[in-house]
């Protein structure tokens, strides 16, 4: 069996590169499914009356752990399966509601080959609705440096996320 070729290798990426945009129409189902998938049973993520009356928001809204999953999906859509997340930092600014079209955009902030030979790409990703940034994710993802390297096989001293 021939080995699966990486979708993206480290050498093909440069600082300033833009990731393809992802647009997604958020529905009540998106929010409830996301809350269920992260086992977040708090009512403001599934009960509109609670969200409006108790939280003072206009509707139920996407929970934080599910937004993390959206960011991961966005990044690995770009890297393919060989891309391995090392580190993510989230900042949530505002809520995402049913009826919103969320738009994820990303740019390469740095490319670094570390002292173990691991190829790291820094990404700044934003999740916006109507041009307003709702949350941001700064990520560090490892890509294969060549067709024989696989970041997932790095362990212990060879994995410095």
């Amino acid at each position: 069996m021939s080995p699966l070729a990486p979708v993206l290798v480290f050498g093909a990426v440069a600082e300033g590169d833009l990731l393809p945009e992802l647009r997604y129409d958020v529905t009540a189902t998106t929010v409830v499914l996301g809350a269920l998938a992260t086992r977040d049973w708090r009512p403001m993520h599934h009960d509109k009356d609670f969200a409006v009356v108790r939280n003072g928001t206009r509707d139920i809204f996407l929970n934080t752990p599910n937004q993390a999953a959206w960011f991961e999906r966005y990044i690995t859509d770009w890297t393919g399966p060989h891309g391995r997340l090392g580190r993510v930092t989230f900042r949530m600014r505002d809520s995402v509601f049913p009826g919103d079209t969320m738009v994820l955009d990303g740019a390469v902030s740095e490319v670094i080959l570390d002292d173990t030979g691991c190829g790291w790409v820094g990404l700044d990703v934003t999740l916006a609705v109507d041009g307003d940034v709702k949350s941001t994710c700064a990520a560090r993802v490892a890509l294969p440096v060549d067709h024989t390297d696989n970041p997932w096989h790095r362990r212990h001293d060879r994995w410095k996320p």
Partner: peptide
């Protein structure tokens, strides 16, 4: 399914075996 993540690592055992030595969970 909740975020329509089609990464074959999670759906295709042959890919998971080759790339991650078997199935893994999404890191996040």
């Amino acid at each position: 399914a909740s975020v329509e993540n089609g990464n074959p690592l999670f759906w295709d055992d042959a890919v998971a075996t080759e790339v991650t030595d078997g199935p893994i969970a999404p890191p996040t």
